[in-house]
Write a protein that binds this DNA or RNA. Sequence first.
RNA 1: CGGGAUGUAGCUCAGCCUGGUAGAGCACCGCGUUUGGGACGCGGGGGUCGUCGGUUCGAAUCCGGCCAUCCCGACCA
Length: 567
Amino acid sequence: MTRLSQLLLPTEREPPADAEAISHKLMVRAGLVRQLGTGLWSWLPAGWRVHQKVVQIIREEIDAIGGQEMLMPVLQPADAWRKTGRYEIDELLKLQDRKGAEMVLAMTHEECVTTHVAQVVRSYRDLPFSVYHFQTKERDEPRPRAGVLRTREFIMKDAYTFDRDEAGLDVAYEAYARAYDRIFERTGLEWYSVESDVGMMGGSGAHEYMAPCAAGENEVALAPGYAANVEIASAEPQPVDVSAPLDAPERVHTPDATTVEAVARLLDVPAGALLKAFPIVVDDGAGRAGGLVLVVVRGDHRVNEIKLANALGAPWRPAREDEIADKIGPPGFIGPVGATVPILLDEAVGDGGYVAGANERDHHLRGVQPGRDFAFERVDVRKVEAGDTVGGTPITLEPAIEVGNIFKLGTRYSVPLGATYLDVDGREQPIVMGSYGIGPARIVAAAVEQFADEKGIAWPRALAPWDVEVVALGKPGSDELAAAEGLCRELRTIGLDVLLDDRDAGPGAKFADAELLGCPLRLTVGRRSLQDGRAEAQIRRGLRSVEGGIPLEGAADAVAELWRTLP
RNA sequence: CGGGAUGUAGCUCAGCCUGGUAGAGCACCGCGUUUGGGACGCGGGGGUCGUCGGUUCGAAUCCGGCCAUCCCGACCA
């Protein structure tokens, strides 16, 4: 039992002046966390209890699938990071020790764990296995934000699997996916897993675990049976009226109409009947090096930069105005017809006569038919929009916090770091890896975001810093306080964590703080209820009062029964 | 890295335009009263006004540099 009179719980009436996100405001107001600097947060006792509840849930579920907990250092020699190419990442914090040796502060632990595995694993008999730890990550984020949602230092559960081959990785990946399902289900969060981008560094599959909430940094496309990060989402476009193609493109005068909106208005066609040309320069050695490429999407659509990079299989940048003017046409009036550069045409562009830039100042072309009037390569590079359909059902887009991810790394790290084994035939093979992250702090913040109301936080049972807060209304030394202490002892017998508000404060202050802190159940012992031999009970989620409260005689049974019904 | 904003007491802010004794509410300390929804009275403590420099007889206030923090965007293994 924790006595509030002894607890370091600095609650505030007002949120920090510059806070925006609900979780930022409430976690500070409730005395859970305090800021030290940009993106640097201390967890105060009550907040740390919540964090550790999340950690314990994760630990139990990863242990259950055979993960082995260990611990690796944050401060690491730069050497392995140079070998994997990650030394160049801007977010990586670099420093020197007193001897001048290059060191880094780890942002994840692939380099470290793979280095060890390279030394230790010799034979296919040593595989597969999985290890994990909870450890601080350091990232020199360009823009930390929203309290503990995006910080420069945070604790991550990162797990790694090591397998003989892709088939083994698939099994491990699936086991982690099921463990993650159980973890997020146990937290009480609203969550879902989505397909996600595997990034430029390869990897053959990835999922993100998302907690929807207003402060989320990611956008997720949702339809029944479909959930994907908008970074990679695909959907059927909404229909648009496109006129029939003309026998040949017709040149029309469109003075100063350099935007889709202006052209659509001038020619009285929907924006979707235009072809939007997006010139880029692809940065690879595969025949397109240094060359311009024209990406063409429907006029009412936008290019999704990540989908484009994935379609190209290479980095790219927008073309500069001089490059466009030089190779294609006057900026604002460029189009695919007659362009001498490769053309990528988005899937959402169907048959029909489109309006496109004429590659001539103040002119567009009408009745342009893809295929007939220009050659193209078909790609899916547009950003999906709310109302697009998947399997006939419209999708919605909603913001979400990424609270976890699972990733098939393959041999991305084992090859540069020499993590190999000898197979049954005595041949050397690279170990096939997976990595699996969860950010407990984000789970905490997401829970605050999802369940807060105007009074404060309303924790899910599994995460609350204490299960029950007992509010004693009397002064220190009063009958009410004595009865409240007795009640706390009762509750301990059924394994509940109890916080007792034994402060010398008015009822208003105690109730307000209890609702701010958000323990799932509040029991109040005051003069009134004491006369009846009862404690009043309020369920925090929804602020529902329990009819008649609970009897002080036999409180353990009554509360145990009530507890089972709480969210 | 671009754009915007803010730095005055522990917190939320006023004062700055128009230079002249540094303020309020809450919080805190003492005494007393009070105890079912953030009490009341009386008394009290607490601030290099982010920082460095400039202008001025005199700077929280005007000017400049720097630093810090927040928001939007870019970025995000």
